[in-house]
Structure formats: structure tokens, C-alpha cells
Design a protein around this nucleic acid. Sequence first.
DNA 1: ACATTAAGTGATT
DNA 2: AATCACTTAATGT
Length: 216
Amino acid sequence: MLRSESKLKILQSQLGYILEAELLEEMASVAKVRETNTDEVVVNVGDHLLMIPIVIEGSVKISRENPNGDEILLYYIEGGDTCAMSLQCCTRKIDSQIKATSMEPSLLLMFPSQYMERWLNDYKSWREFILNSYHSRMLELMEAIDAIAFMNLDQRLLKYLSDQAKLLGSLEIHLTHQKIADDLHSSRVVISRLLKQLENKGEIKLFRNKILLQNF
DNA sequence: ACATTAAGTGATT
DNA sequence: AATCACTTAATGT
């Protein structure tokens, strides 16, 4: 477990320009470190959250899931970001409406909800940070709705691949067709066929468990 | 060599 | 665009 001085360093590197020093120190003293592996589920639908995570390194995928296990990808959270929605879950004591899955080995800092609520009153920078987070998530949510409502599946697939590449900083995407289908709430067969079309157009190259983007 | 899993294909709705 | 039923290819034991 990291000592609080090193937690402070981590916090300063990610949030030093946004939050005041006093707050950062307080945060460091109450933060719990959580390291996650690829595909590890951080939050499940229906979970009661007692701690709110801020992603420090890596990235986390936020998706909606119904009781049948059907899923749809909403957006990603990257370094220095939090999902302000989880704040509501904590303070209003409601179950999580979303599922959070780690996309790569990631480092999260977890903060007990009672502090987060108090910081809202005590620190202007914290209020701005949280409001900002709400705003970003809202924009991303609208983008997701646009994609689902107005884009064809082949366009969505391309967007998905380029988002993935940007996020993980690599043109090599290590995913099976099945996992992509799950994220886009489609079926494997359809995704396989669309990917094959993209390969024929020269946009990508297909391998087992791997997709190589050509021109991004 | 055999079993398992990922990906490809044609036909049907 | 989804589903079924089947084939082929790649990988693990």
C-alpha cells in the first residue's frame, strides 16, 4: 500500500492544476489505492458505492447493463477523471445504474463519500471539478445517444475502433469480435462481416484476437 | 492428437 | 441486421 506522501505526488501530478494544495493533502490522507487488471469489473449495476473512484492511470469503460446481461457501451473515463454519477450513488444511497470495467491495468484512488460531500461545501475548486465532470459525462452521453440513434452500425464500428485506438494509444486492438459485439450491443456474426468489409476497403487488417488499424 | 475457442459463410427471417 | 447452423482456422493441453 502506498504511503500518503506518494499518494499526494500522484494526486498533484493529475489534479495539481485544478485543485488547491490544501485539498490535495486532505485527499491524500483519506485515499485508498486500488489497482485493477484488464477486464476487471470495478462497479456493477446495483452496487452500493461507499467509495468514489478517480482514475489516475489507465482507463475504465462505463456501460449500461440490463438483467439479461445485455450491454451497451456509454463512454470511457481516463486519467484524472471521475464519474460524478457515482457521487450521487453514494450521497443519495442509491444503487449504481452503470457498470465500470477496467480496460487495461489501471490505478484508481478511492475516496469515502462523506469527504466528497464535505469538500463540495469547503472547496470551490472541488465544486468546479465535480460540475465539470458532470458536464463532460453529459456530453459523452449525448455523443453515445447520437451514435446509437443516427449512425449505421458500420459507422459506429469505425468510431469504436478509432476511440479504442486513441484511448489505449495503439493501432493494435486486442479484442475478439464477440467483445466488440457486446460493447456495441450487436452480434458477433454481424461484426465479423462488417470488419471483413473494412478489411477489404483497406481500412484495417484482421488477425486472431487482434485488429490492426491502417490509416488513423 | 484432441479439445477448445475465434472467426468465416450461406441461408433464412 | 439478427439468428441459425455449420465450417474452417488458430491455439492450448
